[in-house]
Design a protein around this nucleic acid. Structure first.
Lengths: 210, 210
DNA sequence: ATATGTCAGTTGCAAATGCAACAATATTAT
DNA sequence: ATAATATTGTTGCATTTGCAACTGACATAT
């Protein structure tokens, strides 16, 4: 991760108030935004944690993405269709920056430096985000629950440079993230434990194979 | 799609040769690039069709993405790991533009206009690409083969503004793209036909429900 | 302190899925 | 024209998965 772009500097520069940017606060479980209108909205999560979730016609929930500090999301990255109910839900108290992609290439009234910086930094942020999204696809294209679990664990392990790591959300949410049934996932985790492939202690897992 | 950024103008500007950009030609079935080294490579498919494929340890193939004219891909968008063998394979004869993301924000020796244009346009391209990738995630997070098929068909239908459409690859490849077993997919397609939900004529499908 | 709600962990059962194998057709190469 | 190759279509069978339902543990609110 050491060669990744650090968004912190970018956020720092936001502090000079730009008239096209809004900062809002959300309490845990509040809905931050819903992807229903085409308004090219882009958001940056300054503080807290949130999930992008979809509810299908059965009310079945899928966690599409999980956001932590400095993650970027927004309806601008989605083709909004009728059949999808996408929304971003705060999992903790959140501080969120909103702006429109439409304004990205227009200078604001104050002629602030913000847009120049934004244009320069935006594509770097995008490349980083693309990596995350592609990682997610890697996991989802695995055919079995077992492979999805191990695929995700491998990524967490690689990120931490350690065979032991914690999952960044509850097991219930992990099932949603891997897009599998929770009980089926629990069963598979049990099998993996029984076969000596992993160890589990609450939300902390250890990969035992070389 | 009418509000989408049109890459054609961008490609047009490439014609002024920039020393950091290479154009290469590939025959059908040739490997365009393999994601094994960290070199921040970005590619634009000027002509032809190609697939980003993964072969897992069993040799099982998954089509991660399908590229048509003007699509953008490259190892820069992936976190290269040991356990993944990713490569881009030409499905037809291809003409591909290669450049490195590292050079994106440095002027080239010739001080050509290319980089300025690239910087300005790149984030727009990225937003479009992000939409495609997120669409893919939408499909993959569906729990059943039926939902994946219908989800994908719905997208194709929406893109064409028509209940009838052709899939852009073979049924074999479609199964890989949806990340399901081919025979299971064929069976499900048969059920969908039997239930009067879809009609099939070769690679052309029609959605019969309102 | 007690109630309420969320999360982890299990299990039986039915349904969906993957696997293997094969035949029929279509496409491509020689 | 013919052979070789790829694709489509199908089926039986074993395995995996999802669903529903329930218990116990834990946390939070009143």
């Amino acid at each position: 991760m050491d060669d990744e772009y650090n968004i912190d500097n970018f956020i720092e520069k936001f502090s000079k108030n730009c008239d096209n940017v809004q900062k809002k606060y959300f309490k845990k479980n509040q809905v931050i935004t819903t992807y229903i209108q085409k308004r090219n909205q882009i958001c940056i999560l300054l503080q807290g944690e949130a999930d992008l979730v979809r509810y299908d016609f059965n009310g079945l929930k899928s966690i599409i993405e999980h956001y932590a500090q400095n993650d970027v999301f927004g309806e601008a990255f989605y083709t909004v269709t009728v059949n999808n109910e996408l929304s971003v839900e705060a999992k903790k108290n959140c501080e969120v920056l909103f702006f429109s992609y439409d304004n990205l290439y227009n200078e604001c009234k104050e002629h602030c430096d913000f847009h120049k910086i934004l244009m320069n930094d935006f594509s770097k942020i995008m490349v980083e985000k693309m990596k995350l999204v592609n990682t997610r696809i890697e996991i989802l294209t695995k055919r079995t629950t077992r492979e999805k679990i191990l695929g995700y664990f491998d990524i967490l392990s690689t990120r931490k440079f350690s065979k032991s790591f914690e999952i960044p959300f509850s097991l219930t949410d992990l099932a949603d993230y891997l897009s599998v049934d929770r009980s089926a996932m629990m069963r598979e985790i049990k099998y993996l434990k029984d076969e000596g492939i992993i160890e589990k202690d609450g939300n902390k897992f250890t990969i035992l194979t070389d």
